[in-house]
């Protein structure tokens, strides 16, 4: 096993502790992110079935079926059946108790797509995820660059910056709602002192800013650690050569390190979108509950409100179906990315 395989457990210990010297090209962060194994992929996959070990235990469905059974059963009950139910429910009009059900074809979808409410939710989701993405990735890049430059206190900084990962999104939301509450929040007071009429309960833009801040605060650590690890893998020799040529630290970061981090940045962008789309539910719930005036009513929150508060099961199911289709497209895109990266034909 050579280092070029970039096996994840080999990577982390080394890059986190010390910079590697020498010119090998393994990108710890991205390589691991993509699941490692570039060389093994390329050579072998051609002449055999994709994603199957060359050395395998051959034919016979008995044992593998048994091995797959637990996962497939769990997926059946908690993934496929619910998804199927969403699909069915999305073409039904029914009362919440299920005593009165009518088949309405695609009425739920039609109503949904025609409603200004839903279109607003799409717009909001778009801006929220984009802003969150830029803020998260931008802060993470700056912090990672700074971490890479310094020697003293590096692990202390890293420890603190990683801390929000441990904090539940719900708790993060509560903390931020508290800090920026216009009536009593200490940071809102500061804003008021400097003359900003801050009020996320009233002003849609403020609300969107607040949830974006909270969501980013919670997620910067994720991007940060990938970038720190990625930067460590940038060969010192390359940087030294550039320094000899007179390139300053920032210039070197932009023109050497950043391009090498490209795949990591791409990967992080996709992950940030997924995070913003689906995993910020608790933050929205704790900070704004989708308001004011629907300004933070992101799609996944709307699914919940329509399903569990409004008890409009048909519409909620139709939204689930649309979201699932979207997520499926994301999955396929991500696969294509893995495909290109490490050449896993599956």
């Amino acid at each position: 096993m050579t280092l070029r395989l970039s096996i994840p457990w080999r990577d982390t210990r080394a890059p986190v502790l010390q910079r590697r010297h020498g010119g090998h090209q393994s990108k710890a962060g991205t390589g691991a992110a993509a699941g490692g194994s570039r060389t093994s992929g390329k050579v072998r996959r051609r002449e055999q079935e994709a994603g199957l070990k060359r050395a395998n235990f051959g034919d016979g469905p008995g044992l593998p079926t048994l091995l797959l059974l637990p996962q497939l059963l769990i997926l059946l009950f908690f993934f496929f059946i619910p998804s199927l139910r969403a699909l069915m429910q999305s073409v039904l009009l029914s009362d919440p108790f299920g005593t009165n059900v009518q088949f309405v074809w695609f009425d739920n979808f039609k109503t949904l797509l025609a409603s200004s409410d839903y279109r607003q939710s799409i717009t909001v989701t778009f801006w929220f995820t984009v802003a969150q993405n830029v803020l998260t990735l931008g802060s993470a890049l700056v912090l990672a660059f700074a971490t890479d430059r310094i020697v003293r206190g590096r692990s202390a900084y890293r420890t603190i910056i990683l801390l929000p990962y441990a904090i539940a999104p719900a708790i993060a939301g509560i903390l931020w709602a508290f800090l920026f509450n216009p009536a009593v929040g200490p940071l809102a007071q500061v804003l008021h002192w400097v003359g900003i009429a801050w009020d996320p309960n009233l002003n849609p833009t403020d609300a969107l800013i607040l949830v974006t801040l909270a969501a980013s605060w919670k997620h910067v650590c994720y991007d940060y650690i990938f970038l720190v690890v990625g930067l460590l893998a940038v060969p010192v020799s390359l940087m030294e050569a550039a320094a000899v040529d007179g390139a300053g630290p920032i210039r070197r970061f932009v023109s050497i390190a950043l391009p090498m981090l490209g795949p990591t940045v791409f990967f992080l962008t996709v992950m940030n979108f997924i995070y913003g789309f689906f995993e910020t539910f608790a933050i929205i719930d704790a900070v704004t509950k989708g308001g004011p005036a629907g300004a933070t009513n992101i799609l996944v929150y709307k699914v919940f409100v329509d399903g569990f508060v409004n008890l409009d099961l048909g519409s909620s199911a139709a939204q689930s179906v649309l979201l699932m289709s979207f997520a499926l497209i994301c999955t396929l895109l991500q696969f294509r990315y893995f495909d290109r990266k490490v050449n896993y034909g599956v």
Binding site: I81, R85, A86, E279, F304, S320, M324, L328, C330
Partner: peptide
């Protein structure tokens, strides 16, 4: 990539 939040009701 389909977190449970997406299909929460069903």
């Amino acid at each position: 990539m389909l977190p449970i939040e997406v299909r929460i009701v069903p």
